[in-house]
């Protein structure tokens, strides 16, 4: 499988899904880009208006389909553009980690972090750190158990 090794063909490269909220973390990611802060290429960002849009189903689906990690980024508590959204994110995050543990998925594969629009460096650091953490966990078990299927198969 192409995606299980980097362009040099060495080792395992995790594939990480990132949800970033429009007002803070997505802007922080943009700033990291504008500042040309280099980071590992393992993350794929999905934009949502608020981190509170992320329902547990997204995280569970992603992990059960074999993605190696899910990172949800939001505004710092107290700074949510919609006042309270990130409080929901925080609470859901805590519960969801317990659930993942219960079903046998390493809870570290799912992380919630706060990145503000001016924290380009923090976004880059977060991507680095989370990529390394998930790389150290190895491939997400469901993936290595999944047999190759037809492309486009959901």
């Amino acid at each position: 499988m192409v995606s299980s090794s980097d362009s040099l063909g060495n080792g395992f490269e995790p594939k990480i899904l990132v949800f970033a909220c429009n007002w803070c973390s997505y802007a922080g990611a943009d700033l990291a880009g504008v500042s040309r802060l280099q980071m590992p290429p393992n993350c794929r960002v999905v934009r949502v208006m608020c981190s509170a849009r992320v329902r547990p189903e997204f995280v569970i689906t992603a992990l059960s389909k074999g993605l190696d990690g899910v990172l949800v980024l939001g505004c710092h508590p107290g700074d949510c553009h919609y006042s309270e959204g990130n409080y929901f994110t925080r609470r859901r995050g805590l519960l969801l980690r317990k659930l993942l543990e219960y079903v046998g998925i390493e809870p570290e594969r799912f992380q919630v972090r706060w990145v503000s629009a001016s924290e380009g460096a923090k976004f880059a650091e977060t991507v680095e750190r989370v990529t390394e953490q998930i790389r150290a966990l190895g491939p997400n078990r469901p993936r290595s158990e999944v047999l190759p299927t037809e492309p486009g198969d959901k």
């Binding site: 007002w23 803070c24 802007a27 505004c75 107290g78 700074d79 503000s116 629009a117 001016s118 924290e119």
Partner: peptide, 17 residues
């Protein structure tokens, strides 16, 4: 500005929009 008082909001985050 880095942050604004008394909320300690990130200045650019609330200014940019």
């Amino acid at each position: 500005l880095d942050k604004t008082f008394p909320t300690n909001d990130c200045a650019m985050c609330i200014l940019a929009p």
